[in-house]
Amino acid sequence: MLKENIIEIKKSLFRISDVLELCSVYIFCFFLNTLFEYIKTLDLESYILKEFLNKFTTYQKLIVLLFTFIVIVFHYQMLHRKKTEIFCKKLVGDTIFNITIRYIFDCLMILIFIYLLSSLVNIYFNFNLINNLYLVGIFFVYIIISAREVQKYENF
């Protein structure tokens, strides 16, 4: 019984739906960045199209950065929804430190998985693998900042 409880306690904060949601937002951001890289390689004959796309590719980093805000929204809303669960876990013997570490680990696993997927796409299109790396850095910062939020829910 005690063993089962320990297993329950050690369960991640992530449910399947959360994993899928986080995967989707990561995929969207990586996809957007790769799409920009793809557009830059296009040898367009149409001046109008070139000009139109140029208005976006000029601000590529800024646009992608602004869209990464949806990842912040995900972390924010997820932890907000899980505050009761975090408190309950603590009540039954888990520690905030362990919950935080598990949360960071889960986020990083998803991030690495999606990054590897995006790298495969980059390899397929012969794009530089470093192109998407800055997004990993940004998302890592988001994870660390959101992990600090976990500690906020120590007291319900």
Binding site: I48, K55, F56, L66, F69, I72, Y76
Partner: peptide, 29 residues
């Protein structure tokens, strides 16, 4: 919950910039 409001502003900003750029290109042509 300002984060949600900020993200809505940013998303709208993207939508507006896209619409604005496309409309200007079409009108100018």
């Amino acid at each position: 919950k300002a984060i949600l409001g900020i993200s809505m502003i940013l998303l709208l900003c993207m939508a507006n910039y896209t619409t604005f750029t496309a409309t200007r290109s079409i009108l100018s042509t």
